[in-house]
Design a protein around this nucleic acid. Structure first.
Lengths: 196, 196
DNA sequence: GTCTATATCGCGATAGAC
DNA sequence: GTCTATCGCGATATAGAC
């Protein structure tokens, strides 16, 4: 499995730097230090490489989106989730930049993506009511509002760094912090006053 | 100028349907009902076609983003601006889907885009304080908060429909309405109570 | 598993007639 | 302005030796 991983690592790097369409299988092979023929021994084509990279991404999603279960989550925990997501986005930058184009070009990937994403989104949506119940957020929040708040935070998590790039800025800690602050702005009306 | 426009129309249609990288100059020529050679008479290459399409887009931006100046703008006016933007996005769908990839591949377009966008963004950012002054929004809103609110609304305007597509949904009036509601959710704490 | 060599294809782009 | 014909290139993908 060593070569396969080298190919995937090289592909991610090149895709992030130049975009998927500018990067050929030959480029990837060269960057991975192997021959073009060898690449085709491990992957049927470029599409398959992209699919594998997305499987990696799905895996990272899976292991990094949970709030703590052993104690009551704080606002800092919520910020941590978003921050972690920003880091993931930075690593798999190309996937987020090109997501819509990639999904249109590969219906298998499309279906798989929708399924995985849907699962994450549904879990995420329940978060607001849970946080209200636990007292981390101040209620009452009616269910439509809760969904809108979740949608807003999800939108920020998923697209804020794209916004930064469209602005022509480099993604760095400062910009991530700006994203966090946007999320806090959304939650502001529901943040409990500090108690003594 | 007739053929040039036919080429651009055909290109927009194909780009929206299949993405820029899947569409060759040959495809565009065929869809426009002309020969490949003729296409190259009008445009140096595909990049140039994309640039022209963006110029069209910039023009549409210019003429459609203003709030009324002859009367005090209402919340409905603000919604109207976002809605208009959604319609533009629908028409130039591919440009928004692929924006980051396109800007990386063409530094001339990149610089031009940043300039134009910056201009629009700066005007937009002033909107919140103005709306407070006019009484359409309820103050006081400190300047950092005003910037965050503007950033949030801008983010929604620019990326909500992408979110919808990533969800696997079709862009329609209902989804646009959802976007408007997200914006209203952001503004909710600053909406004046209805006066009698 | 990995390499070299190569077949095939389609794209971008140009030349030159009309 | 528009066409047909065509060239050169690079990308994908396969064959077959090691």
């Amino acid at each position: 499995m060593k070569t396969k991983d080298r190919i995937l690592d090289a592909a991610i790097k090149l895709f992030n730097e130049q975009g998927t369409s500018a990067v050929s299988t030959n480029h990837i092979a060269e960057a991975a230090g192997i021959s073009p023929g060898n690449l085709y021994y491990h992957f049927g084509n470029k599409e398959e490489i992209i699919r594998e990279i997305f499987e990696r991404l799905f895996h990272v999603w899976d292991v990094s989106f949970d709030l703590p279960r052993d104690r009551i989550p704080t606002l800092e925990d919520i910020q941590g989730v978003v921050r972690t997501n920003f880091e993931i986005i930075r690593q798999y930058r190309f996937a987020y930049r090109e997501i819509l184009a990639l999904l249109r070009q590969d219906s298998v990937l499309h279906d798989r993506y929708i399924t995985i994403r849907q699962r994450g989104y549904e879990g995420f949506r329940e978060m607001i009511p849970i946080l209200v119940t636990l007292g981390t957020l101040r209620g009452p929040i009616d269910s439509e509002t809760a969904v809108r708040l979740a949608d807003l935070i999800w939108l920020i998590s998923e697209f804020w760094l794209s916004e930064v790039e469209v602005e022509g800025q480099i993604i760095d800690d400062y910009q991530m912090q700006r994203g966090i602050e946007l999320m806090m702005e959304v939650l502001k009306p529901y943040i409990p006053p500090p108690d003594e």
